[in-house]
Structures are given as C-alpha cells and as structure tokens.
Design a protein around this nucleic acid. Sequence first.
DNA 1: TGTACATCAGTGAACGCGCGTTCACTGATGTAC
DNA 2: TGTACATCAGTGAACGCGCGTTCACTGATGTAC
Lengths: 216, 216
Amino acid sequence: MRYSKEHKLETHARIVKKASVRLREKGAHGIGVADLMKDAGLTHGGFYAHFDSREALVIEAFAYAMDRSTDRWRQLAGQAAPDQRLSTIVDAYLSPQHRDNPGHGCAVPALSAEIARESPKTRKAFAGKLDQMIGMMAEQFPGAPGKAARKQAMAALATMMGTLVLARVAGNGELSEDLLSAGRDAVLGRAAAAKPAVRKAAVKKVAGKAVAGAKN
Amino acid sequence: MRYSKEHKLETHARIVKKASVRLREKGAHGIGVADLMKDAGLTHGGFYAHFDSREALVIEAFAYAMDRSTDRWRQLAGQAAPDQRLSTIVDAYLSPQHRDNPGHGCAVPALSAEIARESPKTRKAFAGKLDQMIGMMAEQFPGAPGKAARKQAMAALATMMGTLVLARVAGNGELSEDLLSAGRDAVLGRAAAAKPAVRKAAVKKVAGKAVAGAKN
DNA sequence: TGTACATCAGTGAACGCGCGTTCACTGATGTAC
DNA sequence: TGTACATCAGTGAACGCGCGTTCACTGATGTAC
C-alpha cells in the first residue's frame, strides 16, 4: 500500500502522541516498542521506518508532551484575570485529577528523574523544553520579567513537580491530600491553614476543566 | 564453607548497602541482580538465599537509604544552632555535591518517580519512610510541632527534591546552578537576590561536610 | 486512456542478547557420638 | 579427644522470556509510457 504524502507524517505524529501518553504512565523504560506500535494500531516491524531508535522516539514524545503542557497552561492562565493566573495554574497542577492521570499530565514529574540518567543528547533535549516551561511560568508572576521572575518560576515548578511526585507515591489517602495542599500553599505564598473551605471549591472547579478533560 | 551465625546477616547487610548506592545511581530498574551481587563481591546464584525477589531487595535498599538520610540530616541539624538548623539542611541538600552524587544522596529525588509506578506493597514501604522524613523536617521548623509544621515540612521536602531532580537534568551549567539557588531561596523564605556573596560561602562549607564526605 | 512497472509504509518471522530465576553441586566448618 | 556426618552460604551453568533491532517480503497506489 502506497499512501499519500501526508500519510507517513500523520502516522509518525500518531505514534509520538500515543507514546507520549504511555511513556508518562509507565516510565521511559516501562513500555516496549511492540506495545507502543500496537497503541498506534501498527505492528512493531515498521517502527524503524519512523525512528532511528527507541531513544529517538522517547525524545520526540517527551518534547511533544512538554510543548503541549506549556501551551495548555499558558492558555489556561490567559483566560484568567491577571491576579488569578498563577493560582489557576497551580490549582490545576496540584489537583487530585492531575495526580491520578500521569499519562495526560505534565511530563516533568513523570519522567525527569529517569531523563537525568539518560545520555547527554536526551538530557539536553529535556533541558531545552524545561527552560521554555520555566519561561512560561515566569510570565505568570507579577512585575517585570527578568532574572528574579525566572528564579521564582524555577522554585514554583520544582515545588509543583516535587509535590506531584510525592503525592503519587502516597496514593490517594490523607498524606497525599496534605501534600497537594501544602504544595499549593507554599507556591501561592499562603499560610498553611488559610481559608480551607474556599480553597477546596476553587480547586475542584479549575482542576476538572484543566486536567481531567485534557488529552495530550 | 559454613560460616558463623553473624556471617549471613553481615553479607545480607552488605548487599543491601551496596545496592542502595547503585539503585540510586542507576534507577530502580537500571541495574541487574548479577551486577548488584558482583558489587557485594558475590555471584548472582546466591541472591535468592537472601531475598525472595529482586523487588524485595529494592524495598530493603530503599528503606536503608531513607533511614540513613533521615538520620544524617537530623544529626546535621542537631549540631547547628537552633535558628540555623533548617538552613544547614537545605544548603547541604541543594548543593552541587549532592546533585552530582546521587548514589550517596537522598533516595527521594533519585527513586520516587519510579516507586510511584511500583506495586502497592513497594509504594507503601516508601510512603512510610517518606512520612518519617517529613517528621524529621517538621522538627526543624520553629514553633510547636503540629499539622502546620508538618505541612511546611512537606512543601520544603517537595521543593528540595524537585529542585534536585531538575538540577540533575540540567547538568552542571548556569541553569542548574540557578535552579539550586532558586530552591534554597524559596525554602528558606528569602527574596531571590538576597546576600549572594555570603550565601555561596555558607553553602560550600556546609555542603562539603554533609554530602560529599558521607557514605550511605 | 490503458497498462506495466516502481515505490515504500507496513508486516511478521527471526536474530542476539541480557535479564530474573532455578537448581545441582561444592566444601569449610559446626556438631553428634 | 578424635572422627564421621550434617549443614548451608555461595557457585556457576542453565532455563525461559521479553526486548530492541533487522530483514525479506507484501500489496496498494502513484507514475511513466
């Protein structure tokens, strides 16, 4: 079967998209080439017509997931009032929905510890996307963009992704909920026990829209 | 060869100790049974006289690493003046030495993302140790110990481990240093540009003592 | 326009390899007599 | 005390399995004439 010119590009994109979900769910080494191809409705033999190696797909899938996440949060923030932008992102990020859907969530908590052990080539690709995500977060802080805003963004992202990883380890009990809540309070600069009732309502509304419904 | 009663326990402990280093370096799936046994000066055939399965060793090695880390930081804090305890821990944790020595460092940034995908049994073992580490961190915050201190400790730990993971991805360039610095400032509640010269000196002194010289 | 050929995305069997696990065996030393 | 036996931590070959990768092949469709 010979296909139109766009066909191969579409297939390639479909493999990357499906793989980005499964790799976030199972880890960078947690799923094989045959299963990834099956996810895209193909057999494993055709894999090397699209990618030089398994690692090349991991890099593409990771970059795809990072771009989609960065875009999504930038868009989410753009829809909110200026003084609500940061909290909108943080509440969606540190929601039970995001915790329980790693496959459609941020690639940073899912994959960065593994990426840190990969080849320099893979690490550099990741670091570039991470840099972009830091830039997006820096835009959400009030005041002039600059080194100070970038540093605030770095710390916020570290707290958010770290909290999500720990919350995933803890499962879905009280410890996990406390971790999410502590992370939200820390990033948004609130005292630990501030306005608990109001917070919960806001989290539910934003998180459902931002994470559970999204498909990366 | 038949050995004394303590001999098997000593061998078992040696395997766990060596494995805890290698697993933090290479990831929970990054090194095989044969290499782990070789590290302990043995051949792979004897492995199952000590452990029911590879997963059982991973759990033991993880628990060992967590206990050692918690002990070490509690001790490090105990040697500092009360108002310096938190910063002593944070500066050691977010140092280039700790970033560049995952094998002898904290197990949380090295392994928790992978543990989050393991069996409930493994996850619960990890969560229990994480809870202890949170308790240790909570002791370092001024004021009465309680839910508020625990939440502060959770956020601090999330920021610290998240920052370390991102700094490891970034390598050892400017982005990596900025991440570490941003993490320190965030956990210690400093403005982004506070007293840079004094900070750097303090970091070097504490970090060398705390991390580079330690052998877990 | 009709026909023969070329293309190439995708198929599925096969490869070599490393892994976790099993097992028959070894041999130094504790123990029973 | 001396000797024969029992023990069992550790050895190393072997197992089955799944993985990443390769390769000869297929067959629908674009293209040249």
